[in-house]
């Protein structure tokens, strides 16, 4: 089980709800992924529009926990207001907090993120901050009251996998009591397995499943990879070595003779 702000979940895979070929495939993929938490965004509703009503009924049918995001927010004020709108809309204190610094890389604005997290936590929110792998920033988020920290593997939608393994290892070692989620940049199930093998509590992804040729099949592949990675972590991985270490016994090797 994995705990997010005191609520226990059995699935360690969180998935997004965007970019699927159709609403039906989104629902099938989310079910196949086994995810119990899904992310959604808030966007402007046009007059007469019922897109929100329609999408909300699709999500409700899945019977999952909703984690609203502040995707696209470029200032603390926008992010804080968006989080409060989400709380009003979904009756949840949870928010995936994004404050974006750069349009091309969607790199998090570390300073704005820490500030917004502090404001929201004092207002009763339980914040899931999307950040980079920087330990100093993660520590500041924890100091602000975050019990979940979500570093990227690589830029959102890039499918590059874990680009800074040593920094993610360091985060895990330095923040042993924090629920750590690798969020963004995963492209293949093996990337997700690596995150879990490193001791990360969960992964959050969207594009890798939604943009697969078969999103439902890929959702299942990620589910199995996440389970596999977690089991491997619990089983205890061996340390890497620089040189060979024979696995077959050395004693009794035929044809062996001492060099004269």
């Amino acid at each position: 089980m994995v705990s997010f702000y005191g609520t226990e979940f059995s699935s360690r895979l969180l998935v997004g709800t965007a970019l699927y070929p159709s609403p039906a495939i989104m629902q099938q993929a989310i079910r196949a992924s086994g995810a119990e938490i899904v992310t959604v965004s808030l966007r402007r509703e046009a007059a007469g529009g019922k897109a929100g009503d329609a999408f909300w009924s699709l999500i409700r049918e899945l019977n999952v926990t909703v984690l609203p995001n502040t995707a696209g927010c470029r200032s603390v004020r926008e992010a804080v207001t968006t989080a409060k709108l989400a709380r009003e809309l979904f009756q949840t204190n949870w928010v995936k907090l994004e404050v974006i610094a750069d349009d091309e890389t969607l790199q998090p604005d570390a300073i704005g993120l820490v500030e917004a997290a502090g404001i929201l936590i004092s207002d009763g929110f339980e914040v899931f901050p999307y950040c980079t792998e920087d330990l100093g920033v993660a520590q500041r988020l924890v100091d602000a009251g975050c019990r979940v920290v979500m570093p990227w593997a690589a830029p959102i939608g890039s499918a590059r996998g874990i680009t800074n393994r040593s920094a993610l290892k360091l985060l895990r070692a330095r923040l042993p009591d924090i629920t750590l989620v690798v969020d963004a940049g995963l492209g293949a199930p093996s990337h997700a397995a690596q995150a879990l093998e490193l001791g990360y509590d969960a992964v959050l992804l969207n594009t890798a499943v939604a943009r697969a040729a078969d999103p439902v099949g890929m959702a299942k592949a990620f589910r199995l990879a996440v389970e596999s990675g977690r089991i491997a972590h619990e089983a205890g991985l061996m340390d890497a070595r620089d040189f060979a270490s024979a696995s077959s016994p050395v004693v009794g090797q035929p044809f062996w003779h001492a060099v004269s």
Partner: peptide, 10 residues
């Protein structure tokens, strides 16, 4: 005034 609703998100 901002009038917003739920949408697909990652």
């Amino acid at each position: 005034i901002e009038i917003v609703s739920v949408r697909q998100g990652g």
